[in-house]
Design a protein around this nucleic acid. Structure first.
Lengths: 246, 246
DNA sequence: CGAGCACTTGATCGCTTTCAATAGCTGTGG
DNA sequence: CCACAGCTATTGAAAGCGATCAAGTGCTCG
């Protein structure tokens, strides 16, 4: 439905122009990308890529949210990445997908057929360089996440996730307000559990506990407001009181 | 003591020549790297970089093993990377170190001052490309590790770590023997615990249990032999029975 | 021989999981 | 309009796994 609208977009007008893998491209390079790109829309809940499948394309998330998950044969699943607009999907130089990618909301992808993109990458240091930068950022995020998974309590895990989402949300809506921020949770309790290595019951319990203790406020199931961001960070064990005078 | 010996090595003779960040460099590029490189040796237990410090250099591990760890204020620590020969340390484009890097054994590093290396990287796609490749591999490893941390039991965690080390060891000593492999654990029980998000007591108990059940054999504290690699993989929950007929 | 260190083993505690029931919401159909 | 299915989320009770606290072993080194 919005695919037609979006396929008319030229790279210059793209909402993720300055953050995606193409961020550093000049006009000529954008034209080359323009020539090999196509848009594709996925509905909420729909798989985008399944682990083990052959990847014909790589691409960027233009809008919506997708999850990267790994599963064991007995069904245990662990989320290993949360894909937001401008995030890159796929690995140049590899044919098979290593993870499941599933659209959590409706997702619009800007896709490039893999081979032409790889060829272009070789000729275009700007793309390779930006991809390196993005990959290093993802690696940092993965490592922070490892600390959460390995060493934090359930309560700290929830607080960590909420503060990550809150910070990201704040960076998108440049309200500048550090206090009293609120947002819609883009994840179900089950997805939160898969993110944090918990069960959904534990997630629910800890959400209730944080609410009871006044760390967060809930309207309905999904709307969260954070009355005191510093307090949330303390609960996350991050203790980045980092701006205070003391 | 061996620094003089090693500093005489030219890149062409370097043991990690074909796997490190310089792997794809041609002779001219190697000469440029040669001009800005220097070797440095760290003793076992010695910190190489401390989180928050200014990084003056980046570099490759030439020999030895180092750990990348993150810590919380209360002392909880999580290993987020295990650095083996050819692995790259430091992040081009960032000044402060994000993690603690500690030598586990004696470590020899091939260092490059950061600024000249960054300049060289801009002119040398071979380096940037190889670094991208290595970073993507690290990201994959980190994500596999996240599944271990988030969803596996203590027993599965230990089995996973042992199978990772065993596989790595097998790839270095190309004996081709899939069964009856043995190796020295490069990590203390505490380091294993920090790797796996466990306590050292739990690590010890599960090692004993795996020994009792015949999954592993121990000589002394550190020498491990794996009588049946397939069995170990099963215990790890990886179920890569991948070669069987059924 | 005793100090120091890495490791092992035991007993108990408590957090998270598991199992189970219930609530709230949405959409469908009689 | 209400009944009901289907889904997500909440809450309770009990069980289990790994953490914690605490000894004890074996080794190396002075």
């Amino acid at each position: 439905m919005n695919a037609p609208t979006i396929s008319a977009v030229t790279c210059g007008d793209c909402p993720i122009r300055h953050r995606a893998v193409c961020a550093r491209c000049d006009t000529d390079e954008l034209n080359e990308l323009d020539a090999i790109k196509y848009y594709r829309t996925y509905e909420a809940g729909q798989p985008i890529i399944w682990s083990g499948d052959v990847m014909n394309f790589v691409g960027s998330v233009v809008s919506g949210i997708a999850t990267l998950t790994q599963t064991m044969e007995d069904g245990r699943t662990q989320m290993v990445g949360l894909l937001l607009p401008s995030d890159f999907v796929g690995r140049p130089g590899r044919d098979g997908a290593a993870y499941n990618v599933v659209a959590t909301t409706e997702v619009v992808m800007c896709c490039f057929r893999k081979k032409p993109f790889e060829d272009l990458m070789v000729r275009t240091p700007h793309i390779a360089h930006r991809l390196l930068e993005m990959t290093l950022d993802e690696l940092d995020a993965a490592r922070e996440w490892m600390l959460v998974l390995g060493r934090k309590t359930a309560r700290e895990k929830i607080a960590s996730l909420l503060s990550i989402i809150a910070r990201r949300d704040a960076s998108l809506t440049p309200k500048g307000a550090t206090n009293n921020m609120s947002f819609d949770l883009p994840l179900t309790r089950e997805a939160m559990a898969d993110y944090l290595g918990l069960t959904l019951e534990t997630v629910s319990r800890q959400m209730s506990a944080l609410k009871k203790d006044g760390v967060i406020e809930l309207e309905g199931k999904r709307r969260v407001t954070i009355p005191d961001m510093g307090r949330l960070m303390e609960e996350a064990g991050d203790d980045s009181d980092g701006g205070l005078i003391g």
